[in-house]
Amino acid sequence: MAASAESLQRISAAGLMLQLWRSSLGKKYVMAITGLMLFGFVVVHMIGNLQFFGDATLINEYAESLKSKPPILWGARFGLLAAAMLHITAAIQLAHSNRRARPVGYDGGKVVASTLANRTIIVSGLTVFAFIVFHLAHFTIGWVNADLLKLTDAAGHHDVRGMMIAGFSNPLVSIFYVVSVGLLCLHLSHGVASIFQSLGLRSKKTEANLKKLALVAAIILFFGFCAIPIAVMADLIK
């Protein structure tokens, strides 16, 4: 017994992944790394979207160029899907064990330190997930309105721009969009800084800057995404 107690067992690669997934810290790494991937996607997505404000065909050509490389497109899609699934599964499992660890709250007052963003991280995450499903159904798969995917522009490309204008002309869609993006950004304002802490890249010195970075990123993303529905609703874009 004495020998095994002080030595470690060597493990295989699969064993390593399993150990990673089973340990609380490992699961936080999964959260952080998948979170970073999804954050990267959101940033790229916003940059793509902002081409909406460019030349009338710019965004359509951009969409066409993405679709012209199916291996990359589908690779990215599957990668992101896997990341999202891991992110969500880990989050649910962590939340569950957290509740089990602390089933009773305090009568005398609130927890010592917390912000709106971290108190609502689960709710905002779940709402954003619901939104993503709708968003994909709306603009990618076409379940909401199949005609949106049939629009074409003068060059014969799928008219993404026209689809966005048509979609956001519906006030309910726009409001849902703005609210969801707002929650996403709230989520990110805690999440982005959290990535650095979970991966052990934060220190007292960098803490303030990381928090600022997360906040600035969240604000830029919010205005970047919401500019489109607002512009459509305000009739600035025809």
Binding site: L94, A101, V111, V112, A113, K204
Partner: peptide, 25 residues
Amino acid sequence: GFGNCTNIGSCEAACPKEISLDNIA
């Protein structure tokens, strides 16, 4: 059966010896 860290910092605020979150990182 302890829970997981969600990087909020209540622990650091409550610590009577001011142990820093840097240790967690």
